[in-house]
Design a protein around this nucleic acid. Sequence first.
DNA 1: GTTTGTCTACTCGGATAGTATATGTCCGAGTTTAGCGGG
DNA 2: CCCGCTAAACTCGGACATATACTATCCGAGTAGACAAAC
Lengths: 158, 158
Amino acid sequence: MKLSNGIEWVLHCCVTLSQAQGPVPAQRLAELHDIPPAYLAKHLQVLSRAGVVHSSQGQDGGYGLTRPPGEISVLDVVAAIDGPGGFFRCTEIRKRGPLAAAPERCTTRCSIARAMADAELAWNEALSKITIADLAENIDADSGGTALGDVREWLEAR
Amino acid sequence: MKLSNGIEWVLHCCVTLSQAQGPVPAQRLAELHDIPPAYLAKHLQVLSRAGVVHSSQGQDGGYGLTRPPGEISVLDVVAAIDGPGGFFRCTEIRKRGPLAAAPERCTTRCSIARAMADAELAWNEALSKITIADLAENIDADSGGTALGDVREWLEAR
DNA sequence: GTTTGTCTACTCGGATAGTATATGTCCGAGTTTAGCGGG
DNA sequence: CCCGCTAAACTCGGACATATACTATCCGAGTAGACAAAC
């Protein structure tokens, strides 16, 4: 099971957008990261529908964050791209076969489903603790404090 | 992103095997859970290669756990079926595009990759805390204490 | 009665098709901006 | 000089092909037990 590559792309894009003053076209975001523009656009549309970013059309249009970067968690982005529903789906096989459990006895969820749900909860909580602002800060620190400035400069230039 | 259905199947099968005295054929495990026998066999082969179960051929052959159920974690099973490598794969797009980071500056992992790795660690830890024995105990409790006995009886019959 | 050999039935194991999801691409609908003409 | 109109260029949005991985299945290799015959 592998996560979509788009998740990495849009996370980088969100960090970039957090440094932008105005709207940034998908074309330009793709150029900055050297990734397929059309496919990135598809993922940005999903983010737009999820309410993480907003789009403006026409000349000088593009994408922008709907909230301050400190209020957008990595979980918001991952959940939007990955879609609804968790990793694990219980098919209730305990209700099948020669020893099928009677439906009236299945008042609680299968213990296997509970175990997987707990793990997903741990995953979600870990991702919800990190925001786009945290990512930007760390990226800047890793680069020695020049990365974000370079991005802002590149965005200003045309 | 969805986990394979086989994970649910083999987890149930491991609980069943924890109640067996001798080897249980894949055919019989499939019959008990009402699932495609050939496809289940494929997943059991993977578990066998991972060392979670061992197989014996010939008449009265079948599968059995290699260790006591209390020493087999859910993570062992999930990791075996899901294969090596985590959910997220970093493609190092920071090294691409007009603002590519110099390779010598990339001494540490990208902060995005770190965030995802932390979340995967939380997921893994949650799964490693639960064993097959825990699952069996909970299933028995949910059924009012009759499920495991029924399974043992059904395995003995025939 | 014991032993040995064969033989059969049963098991796993990997190689082989079909289907859903992820990846990648394209062109059309809509909007904003700029330019132009008129007042 | 200001206002309104027109037109063009640029944007997003959803519809359309391709690649990868999950789902499902089959048949062959190998082994353990059962049976029969010989000693």
